[in-house]
């Protein structure tokens, strides 16, 4: 899969970066700014979850299968959304071969209780990601696009304080929510810059202010000002990831200073692209995970990829981190379909 198609003139890295800077590409890049690690990939490379979350060599080995086995233009070693939470000392469940890690308890009750210590990036969960990128940079750095990942202050607040409490406090105690955002905004900046310095070409910033939970005004009032502060401080291109419905807030997102937005299949692709084009926002996504990639066939995948390509999505890939039991055949079908579409 990773072999170059005869009509490809760019390296995967050149292709993704050209797309992110709005330049011409030899074909639409295929990438997932979140994760494409699957159980099949684990079996192929001999590295399994949960080990891969806390061992840099294992993390790098498994992440590389995204390019080596699936043929994607990106390699993204931070698989879950919980490395920072672990570094903050949250009680974790590290999951299983087919289960992502998660936080067991949300330990902090107020922004004041949170301490961001000087060694935050030296802790096992954060250090592993930085170290894995350094290893990948040596092996793939001039050829494949290396994607780092950080959690934004909103998602960190979910993990550190609790989703339900945070959501309710947007109404009952908005000052507290602003307090969490203010306290935590430095975390993605320092973690992103450490990953960029280690060799990442781009970082994903996941901040799940999804339409499945909150309205567009929540993004505008609580996240946008903070994102506008964060993005200029990140020393490289950043892709915002928010799953679920987001078309109603894309015009706000466009003002936040991200290089691109990774969006979900719950949004109508054409509608999203229309808004994004008007606002000057590049889009990454949005092949459906549960019904198409996980439960569908390569033929279903091809149909969805063609729709995304037809709509003008700049980088095509799964909408979110893929279900771990997703068949590799369906993930490879994304690359095959993009080649077929672009080189027909």
């Amino acid at each position: 899969m990773s072999k170059r198609h005869p009509r490809e003139t760019m390296t995967p890295r050149e292709r993704v970066l050209a797309a992110l800077y709005g330049k011409k590409t030899d074909r639409i890049p295929v990438g997932n700014p979140t994760s494409v690690a699957t159980v099949e990939c684990m079996e192929a490379c001999g590295v399994y979850f949960p080990d891969a979350h806390l061992d840099a060599h294992k993390m790098a080995t498994l992440a590389a299968t995204g390019y080596e086995i699936l043929g994607y233009d990106t390699i993204a070693p931070y698989f879950s959304v919980q490395q920072e939470a672990a570094a903050f000392g949250c009680e974790m469940t590290w999951g299983d071969i087919d289960a992502m890690p998660d936080v067991r308890k949300n330990p902090f009750n107020s922004p004041e209780e949170i301490e961001i210590s000087g060694d935050f990036l030296e802790r096992p969960a954060t250090r592993t990601v930085i170290e894995a990128i350094r290893l990948l940079k040596k092996e793939y750095g001039d050829h494949v696009c290396l994607v780092g990942k950080v959690m934004g202050p909103w998602t960190l607040s979910y993990h550190l304080y609790g989703v339900q409490k945070l959501l309710m406090d947007t109404i009952l105690d908005p000052a507290k929510v602003h307090g969490f955002m203010k306290k935590l905004k430095q975390v993605p900046v320092m973690f992103a810059n450490a990953q960029l310095e280690a060799g990442a070409d781009v970082v994903t910033l996941a901040d799940h202010a999804t339409g499945d939970l909150v309205g567009p005004n929540t993004y505008r009032d609580f996240l946008l000002p903070v994102h506008q502060e964060i993005t200029p401080q990140i020393k490289g291109p950043a892709i915002l990831h928010i799953c679920g419905r987001t078309t109603d807030r894309m015009s706000h997102i466009a003002k936040a200073g991200f290089a691109a937005f990774h969006f979900d299949s719950k949004n109508d692709t054409l509608e999203a692209k229309t808004i994004a084009a008007r606002e000057g926002l590049l889009l990454v996504g949005n092949i459906n995970n549960p019904d198409v990639l996980y439960a569908g066939t390569p033929e279903d995948v091809k149909k969805r990829v063609f729709e995304a390509a037809e709509a003008g999505i700049e980088i095509i890939g799964p909408e979110c981190a893929v279900p771990l039991r997703t068949p590799n055949a369906n993930l490879k079908a994304v690359v095959e379909a993009v080649r077929e579409y672009c080189f027909r």
């Binding site: 339900q164 947007t170 109404i171 939970l213 909150v214 309205g215």
Partner: peptide, 14 residues
Amino acid sequence: NHEIFVPEMLVAAR
């Protein structure tokens, strides 16, 4: 009708 979202539902239910 997407006039309100989960936070409003949560505080109403509370």
